[in-house]
């Protein structure tokens, strides 16, 4: 009798706990559903698609093949990857050299000026990225604004022909990804405990030594998250190379877009995407292993 009562009670508590868990499930369910439908399933679909065969006219045939991946090994495509990687590295370095001092100094501004600067960094996001790229065309084109100014002050005597060149694409990439670097560096500099720098100075470090031995180390998480935030998109961005490169600069992003739209080779585009994804994931992994930084300003 007693034991039955006890077991009933036990069943009761289990039930209560179960109900509690149910309710907990309900709150996180939307998150899981969203992730499954808009992240996981598309990736699975992409993965499956990359092993299928292209149909003669339109769409795909359900026939397993590895040809799509073997095709990537062709020199012409490998070269695109190499060039994209090079562009991504240069873009990342460019944003780092401009963005680090920018973000660092912004964090040291007085509060009022700080929010004004922050606004200036964020405002470009309010307009279309495409429009901002057309802005660069006006600057870069032959006899455009830049040429006129340079020739006007006598630095050059003929148009530079900057538009539709590699440097133009690089400038566009750096320009559009710079805010990510600035904001990452800013957020880690803003959190910085400046008494550490004072301690270093007090112990005999010059401004520069203190910067290199303490400040850089303390803002490393911001630098790394900035690098990741810039590097990954710069591998895949295609419209900048399209608009400012005029078809002369071919990046992986452009390749995928071409295969998808004009080439209509969905499986190959999928294979390229999978390889790009694996490649960037590997880069991040190597980076984290090499630097040992765990906290990336909330990233990863």
């Amino acid at each position: 009798m007693l034991s039955r009562q006890a077991s009933q009670e036990a069943a009761h508590t289990v039930n209560a706990a179960g109900r509690k868990r149910n309710r907990w499930w309900m709150t996180v369910m939307p998150l899981y559903l969203f992730t499954i439908f808009f992240v996981a399933l598309p990736i699975v679909y992409l993965f499956v698609l990359s092993f299928l065969t292209r149909a003669q006219t339109w769409g795909v045939v359900n026939e397993f093949t590895l040809d799509n991946y073997l095709k990537i090994l062709k020199p012409v495509y490998l070269n695109t990857f190499k060039e994209s990687f090079q562009m991504a590295v240069l873009t990342t370095l460019g944003t780092l050299f401009i963005g680090y001092p920018f973000g660092y100094l912004m964090a040291k501004l007085p509060k009022k000026t700080k929010s004004l600067m922050m606004l200036c960094v964020v405002i470009p996001f309010w307009t279309s990225a495409l429009m901002r790229m057309y802005g660069w065309i006006i600057l870069f084109r032959s006899n455009g604004l830049l040429d006129k100014v340079l020739m006007g002050i006598g630095l050059t005597d003929s148009p530079l022909k900057l538009l539709y060149s590699y440097p133009a694409v690089l400038v566009g990439m750096v320009y559009s990804l710079l805010p990510f670097m600035i904001l990452s560096v800013y957020s880690s500099t803003d959190k910085m405990d400046w008494s550490l720098v004072e301690a270093a100075r007090d112990l005999g470090a010059t401004r520069w030594t203190a910067f290199f031995t303490v400040t850089i180390k303390m803002t490393l998480p911001g630098i790394l998250s900035g690098i990741i935030l810039v590097f990954i998109p710069s591998m895949g961005l295609f419209f900048i190379a399209d608009i400012l490169g005029g078809g002369k600069v071919m990046l992986v992003g452009n390749l995928i877009q071409n295969q998808l739209q004009s080439g209509r080779d969905w499986p190959f585009a999928a294979a390229l995407s999978v390889v790009l994804m694996v490649f960037t994931s590997m880069m991040i992994w190597i980076y984290r292993k090499a630097t040992g930084v765990k906290d990336l300003e909330g990233l990863l």
Binding site: S195, E198, A200, L203
Partner: peptide, 20 residues
């Protein structure tokens, strides 16, 4: 003179040990 140019050292209130 700059802090690094004088032979004076400080024990800071929050210690300010280098965490890295």
């Amino acid at each position: 003179l700059q802090p690094n140019e004088r032979n004076v050292n400080t024990v800071f209130q929050n210690y300010a040990l280098f965490p890295h």
